[in-house]
Structure formats: structure tokens, C-alpha cells
């Protein structure tokens, strides 16, 4: 780790200002992604702006057909929330499958979504549930939010305040973990809202994406079998020592099929 300045603002305005004024300022939430990369000396921000004391960023509320989760809400809080378990059990289960207890006790939903790791779990839920990302500047639809490898629609200094998840009629998340890290080698989030179905895949390409063919097939018949034969080309799938592109493409079908079967009950 290199030396840095530490700030602990009380409001998002102050936080945004501190980041803007710093030479190379970075927000920190749970630190579960940022700190390891700083320790490995891969990231070297001049200033760290801690969101821990900023008011109004933490907590879960359910109103009508929407679950709102504050950006600073930890994975463990989503995992164990009675409201989330009741409204969107798939989301609570997803949170419970992130990393290990230490990671879940510190890592936050805002940090995970802002970071947009291609293998992270939450992005699949955000896209699969058609969530809205509320920031200090605007509201961003999930379909517009994830733009590339570790890239999002967030502008410099823009802070995620909360994420609004519409409550689906049925949903499930299935993840095949990378054997060493536990991140998703492929994760599939399937959600049904009335006649509409959304399928979001994480871990397979440089960022989370939807599979329209599967969505159409599932809209016609909401069952695992309906998509068992839908195969994706592997030319833009990631390939690494843990998973070749063709295997990833195959896993997309398997995980989506299993998620659909589970959601269908």
C-alpha cells in the first residue's frame, strides 16, 4: 500500500467534492475490492473518501412493489433481511453466496455494483430484475448502467445512493463458482414479471448481459426445458485458466436452465 489521505465526510455532497478536488480520489465503501488492490499496490489513490459516515446510504425498505437497498448496505444485511427474503428471496440468496462471511460483513451492494467486476454476482440481479440505480445526479436504468469491463455509466464523482429493485413474480439465481475465488464463473439470474421474463448472465463476458432468445422462450413457456437447447456463441466469452470460452458458453445454458427451473418452482 502507498500513502494516502483519508477523509470521512458526512454527506454525499461533501464526498463528491472531496473526490473532485483530490488529485486521484477514490470512494471507499466496504473496501473489499479497493483495499486488496491497494495492498497489492495495483491501485494507488491519493485520497480515500470513506462513505461509512454519510447519512442515508444504509438500509432496506420495501414499499409497494419495490425493494430499495441503500448503497452502503452490506451483503450480510441483504442476505439476512426478513423483508428481502420475503419479497425477493433470490436476491437474499444471491447475497448469501458472495465470498465468505468476512467479505459479506464488509462488502456493500453499492461498491459491488459500482465496481462492475465481470464476475460479480449483484450485477446479475440488478440487470435481471430491471433495477434502477439512483445516484447523486440521476436515476439510471439497469440496461444503461453496465457498459464494459469494470465500466459503468457512472460519471466521475457520481455516487450511488440506492438501488431500487422491482419485486418479480418469480426469480432465481444460479451460480457456478470459480473454484479458487468463489466469484461467478457463470451466474444466471432469471426473473418473471407477469408475462415478461428477464435473463441476466454474469461471469461470462466482459460485463453482465441479457439473453433475448432465452427471455422470449421463457415468456412462451416458463420452465427450464424451454431454454435447454439455446446455446450462445463463444466468440465473445471470456477465456482463462479456470474456464475456456466454449465451457463458459455451455455453462450459460446450464445455469440459465437451472435458474429458470428453480424460479418456475
Amino acid at each position: 500500500m502507498y500513502a494516502f489521505n483519508y477523509h470521512r465526510p458526512k454527506s454525499t455532497d461533501e464526498a463528491a467534492k472531496l473526490v473532485a478536488e483530490a488529485e486521484d480520489g477514490k470512494l471507499i465503501a466496504g473496501g473489499m475490492t479497493l483495499l486488496p488492490s491497494m495492498k497489492l499496490r495495483l491501485a494507488a489513490p491519493s485520497d480515500i473518501v470513506d462513505l461509512a459516515a454519510v447519512e442515508g446510504l444504509r438500509g432496506i425498505t420495501v414499499s409497494g412493489k419495490t425493494v430499495t437497498i441503500g448503497a452502503m448496505t452490506r451483503h450480510v444485511d441483504v442476505q439476512t433481511s426478513a423483508e428481502v427474503k420475503k419479497a425477493i428471496p433470490a436476491l437474499a440468496a444471491l447475497a448469501g453466496g458472495i465470498g465468505d462471511p468476512s467479505v459479506r460483513n464488509r462488502g456493500t451492494i453499492g461498491g459491488s455494483v459500482a465496481n462492475a467486476d465481470p464476475a460479480a454476482d449483484y450485477p446479475a440481479a440488478v440487470l435481471g430484475l430491471n433495477a434502477t440505480v439512483e445516484t447523486t445526479k440521476r436515476k439510471i436504468a439497469a440496461d444503461d448502467f453496465f457498459t464494459g469491463l469494470f465500466e459503468t455509466a457512472l460519471e466521475p464523482g457520481e455516487i450511488i445512493k440506492a438501488i431500487h429493485f422491482p419485486v418479480p413474480d418469480a426469480a432465481a439465481y444460479e451460480k457456478f463458482p470459480q473454484p479458487a475465488s468463489g466469484f461467478a464463473m457463470v451466474g444466471a439470474f432469471v426473473a418473471r414479471f407477469g408475462k415478461d421474463v428477464r435473463v441476466a448472465i454474469t461471469g461470462a463476458k466482459d460485463h453482465v448481459f441479457r439473453v433475448p432468445d432465452m427471455e422470449k422462450a421463457l415468456a412462451a413457456k416458463f420452465s427450464g426445458d424451454a431454454i435447454a437447447e439455446i446455446k450462445l456463441p463463444d466468440d465473445d466469452m471470456m477465456s482463462d485458466i479456470h474456464c475456456s470460452a466454449d465451457y463458459r458458453a455451455h455453462l450459460v445454458t446450464v445455469m440459465a436452465k437451472r435458474a429458470a427451473a428453480k424460479a418456475a418452482g
Binding site: 479458487a180 475465488s181 466469484f183 479456470h242
Partner: peptide, 11 residues
Amino acid sequence: LLTGTFMDYGM
């Protein structure tokens, strides 16, 4: 060594 951390080296 491509597997120099626990993110890639599976215990």
C-alpha cells in the same frame, strides 16, 4: 506464475 494469489490458486 499465473496463480500467485488465492483468487486463482484454489485451496
